[in-house]
């Protein structure tokens, strides 16, 4: 565990807390893509199956349980409790366009052709693109609430910090996982446009409105 890894995990944790607080406090999930949230729930449940087969550390297990349970809670809030506020008219990204290629890629390019390893690989690939329905929704409506943009910033920052963690681990531990690195870079690149808007608008106290 190095400082980049810890900062990345904390950023990830913060993103989820911001999202849940936004939904809970405003009693609304307006502006949030349910499709991205379903993909994230799929990411965590397929990646953390080793929770039942392998104990790594208390930190590791607690975080895994947190990510799985909060992603399920988010889906419950969006599709059951605050269903009326869910903006499904703007949440139209076809997730099959992501799930099908990611499944094929996971079956073809993996470290080991075993069920757990293929599911882990699928989850890494899926996570890299899971935010696309949300970004598509923001671009479709042309804006995002400030709290939603804080959520997106923390969520994007988390994988960017993991890249620094991987650089650190490569130099100091000789460790690298090419699948995680390539997917992590793709994931971070997808946020670049949003990062630019966040820094130039939200930080300066303006709402996140896309240029017409």
């Amino acid at each position: 565990m190095n400082v980049f890894r810890l900062a990345g995990d904390l950023s990830h944790l913060l993103a989820i807390i911001i999202l849940l607080l936004k939904i809970w406090k405003t009693r609304s999930c307006a502006g949030i893509s349910g499709r991205s949230q379903i993909l994230f729930a799929l990411v965590y449940t397929t990646r953390y199956l080793d929770l039942f087969t392998n104990f790594i550390s208390l930190y590791n297990s607690v975080m895994k349980v947190f990510f799985i349970s909060t992603s399920c809670a988010t889906i419950y809030l969006m599709y059951v409790k605050f269903k009326a506020t869910y903006d499904h008219n703007h949440d139209t990204f076809r997730i099959g366009f992501l799930l099908i290629p990611v499944t094929i890629l996971g079956l073809l390019i993996n470290h080991d052709f075993t069920p757990l390893e293929v599911l882990w690989t699928f989850s890494i690939y899926l996570e890299s693109v899971a935010i696309l329905p949300q970004l598509f929704m923001v671009s479709k409506t042309g804006d995002a609430e400030t709290i939603t943009s804080h959520y997106l910033f923390c969520l994007g920052l988390y994988r960017a910090l993991y890249i620094f963690n991987w650089i650190y681990r490569y130099y100091f531990e000789g460790f690298y996982d090419l699948i995680a690195i390539v997917a992590g870079v793709v994931q971070t690149v997808l946020y670049c446009d949003f990062f630019y808007l966040y820094v130039t608008r939200v930080i300066k106290g303006k709402a996140l409105k896309l240029p017409a």
């Binding site: 080793d50 790594i56 470290h111 075993t114 995680a180």
Partner: peptide
């Protein structure tokens, strides 16, 4: 290559 048991990252 790294085996599954070495995956400590989240």
């Amino acid at each position: 290559l790294e085996s599954f048991k070495q995956k400590d990252e989240l």
